[in-house]
């Protein structure tokens, strides 16, 4: 029996064998084992992603009759504030006038409301800087003003001054009738 004194020479590569075939087995085993660990890791990571019931977007319907001209109503949508603003003619004109002004996040006013319904502005009420809720009507453009770090939005919800990088977001919404919208 070619009994090497195994305790004295703890070398896993025992002599007398075809090294490349042995090593291949070890490498193949290691690779397959690593693959198993990786494929098992994915479910544990993915389980923290939004679950089915969260993804089943809560969509809300909103009755526009509740918003008087020149006013705004704030509702909760997907855990965040949603601004529904009924703009006056003056506010619409002011927004359109600045369509081609120097804007950080260039957008025309028409891109931010549904065609034929310029007085209705539906925006996510979260400042695009760090997430505070801007106040209605504040700031020199009469749009919104964020008290946290001084971002100023115009009557189209576009960023005009302050640190916010983007305009107030327009969510996915649709008119179910002239007086009712569905958001989400």
């Amino acid at each position: 029996m070619a009994d090497t004194h195994v305790g004295e020479h703890p070398d896993p590569h025992v002599s007398g064998d075809d090294p490349s075939r042995r090593d291949f087995i070890y490498i193949a085993t290691g690779a397959v084992a690593a693959g198993a660990v990786a494929s098992l890791a994915w479910p544990f990571i993915d389980q923290m992603n939004p679950a089915g019931d969260t993804l089943a977007l809560a969509s809300i319907e909103f009755d526009l009759g509740k918003v008087a001209a020149g006013q705004q109503v704030t509702v909760k949508w997907r855990g965040k504030p949603l601004f529904v603003r009924n703009r006056t003619e003056k506010e619409i004109a002011a927004a359109v006038k600045d369509d081609h002004a120097e804007l950080r996040d260039p957008q025309t006013d028409a891109e931010r409301h549904k065609p034929g319904k310029p007085q209705w502005l539906v925006l996510v009420g979260t400042c695009t800087h760090l997430g505070c809720v801007p106040t209605f009507g504040g700031g020199e453009y009469g749009g919104w003003f964020c008290p946290c770090h001084g971002s100023v939005y115009d009557t189209s919800g576009r960023i005009r001054k302050g640190p916010a990088p983007k305009n107030l977001a327009v969510p996915d919404y649709a008119f179910l009738s002239d007086t009712k919208i569905k958001v989400g």
């Binding site: 994915w42 479910p43 544990f44 993915d46 389980q47 992603n49 679950a51 089915g52 019931d53 969260t54």
Partner: peptide, 10 residues
């Protein structure tokens, strides 16, 4: 079991 991704597996 139903909504969490891979919840049934875990």
């Amino acid at each position: 079991m139903r909504d969490v991704n891979y919840g049934w597996l875990i």
